[in-house]
């Protein structure tokens, strides 16, 4: 898909990316800006970096709230809380609008203004406190607190998560290791090498010889709650949900969580990475003169939905004695990996 950017000026390519990839448009736009600026040796200022981090954080919060308030409830037969989600989206759109100026290539200094993400976070904490976040973040300290929260809280979200836990309790342990974080050394080394020589890497990436899981569970693998749930449960579904709650709670506590970076591979050639709601997003831009000579994108969905990736391996391990149970388990599994496209399920009988 990135082929459409070849031949464009770097600034034009950066403007095109968010339009093409609308669902995670801010993360995509920031990744494109970082890759193209690094390739053309433009160093962004602190105010630009902060505004971009706010865009990525606000977009992650938006995606997580959509999952938690709408997709997860519907996966277990509940209507979801569209009123609360609509109110939260109203707040988030203010934050996203306020930092929008930082999206482009080498943004114009004359249009800068302060991001409203800090104010919006405070409002979101108030908005979500009663129904959704009741008992959080204390319940995210470890598995004991988390299980107690699931059992006793009035939070509607806890009730939904408890149903995910119950349905996923008999699902098998997966065989796909977690993707390690991208660092400048990894990006300039092995990642650049794979992008150079492996024509399949963008569409079906693997690492150290095996497909990997990317996303909140990979990022939070050392968090006490996520680590304990991963160790003790037979399915990764609940740890994935818990990892998203951990990240959302941190975002709302005003901890800077945006993990973005870029590094030059060689003159005119750079890689950027942005940790998004669905996992790591990688952009590689090669610029000759002032135009894009090569552009590569590795999206998080390509890791998790790799033909031998997390979804495939865990689907193969699914067992159920009746169709209804099988359908519920498939839905929960797919939701836990958060595809960015509509999906359908067809069951064949062996």
């Amino acid at each position: 898909m990135a082929q459409v950017l070849v031949g464009k000026r770097a600034a034009d390519a950066v403007a095109m990316v968010p339009r093409l990839f609308t669902i995670c448009g801010r993360s995509q736009g920031v990744a494109a800006a970082l890759a193209c600026e690094r390739a053309t040796e433009i160093e962004s200022e602190e105010i630009v970096r902060c505004a971009r981090a706010d865009l990525v954080d606000a977009e992650i919060a938006h995606e997580y709230l959509w999952r938690i308030l709408l997709d997860w409830p519907r996966a277990v037969g509940d209507a979801g809380n569209t009123g609360l989600l609509a109110a939260a989206r109203g707040q988030l759109s203010e934050a996203l609008e306020s930092a929008q100026w930082a999206m482009g290539y080498a943004p114009d200094g004359t249009v800068r203004r302060g991001s409203r993400w800090g104010d919006v976070r405070a409002k979101l904490r108030g908005l979500l406190a009663e129904d959704m976040m009741e008992g959080l973040p204390a319940a995210l300290d470890d598995a004991t607190h988390f299980n107690a929260w699931l059992a006793t809280t009035k939070s509607s979200v806890a009730k939904i998560i408890a149903r995910f836990r119950d349905v996923s309790a008999e699902m098998d342990r997966p065989g796909v290791p977690l993707l390690p974080p991208v660092t400048p050394e990894v990006a300039a080394g092995e990642l650049a090498r794979r992008l150079d020589v492996d024509g399949e890497f963008c569409a079906a990436p693997d690492w150290d010889g095996s497909p990997r899981e990317t996303g909140a569970r990979a990022r939070q693998q050392s968090h006490p709650l996520v680590a304990e749930l991963t160790r003790s449960l037979s399915s990764p579904v609940l740890p994935r949900l818990a990892a998203r709650l951990v990240e959302l709670a941190a975002l709302l506590r005003e901890e800077r969580s945006a993990r973005v970076g870029s590094t030059a591979i060689r003159p005119g050639d750079a890689i950027a990475w942005v940790e998004t709601a669905r996992g790591v997003l990688i952009h590689r831009a090669t610029v000759e003169g002032e135009r894009i000579a090569r552009y590569q994108i590795v999206a998080p969905t390509e890791w998790n939905f790799h033909p031998r990736g997390a979804l495939a391996v865990e689907l193969e391990a699914l067992r159920a004695t009746d169709r209804g149970t099988l359908d519920r388990r498939v839905d929960l599994l797919v939701q836990s990996l958060d595809p960015c496209v509509t999906y359908g399920v067809e069951v064949g009988h062996a």
């Binding site: 459409v4 031949g7 034009d12 095109m16 339009r19």
Partner: peptide
């Protein structure tokens, strides 16, 4: 002619 698909974005 791919620029024609992004008339408002491509300088």
């Amino acid at each position: 002619d791919l620029d024609a698909y992004f008339p408002d974005l491509v300088r």
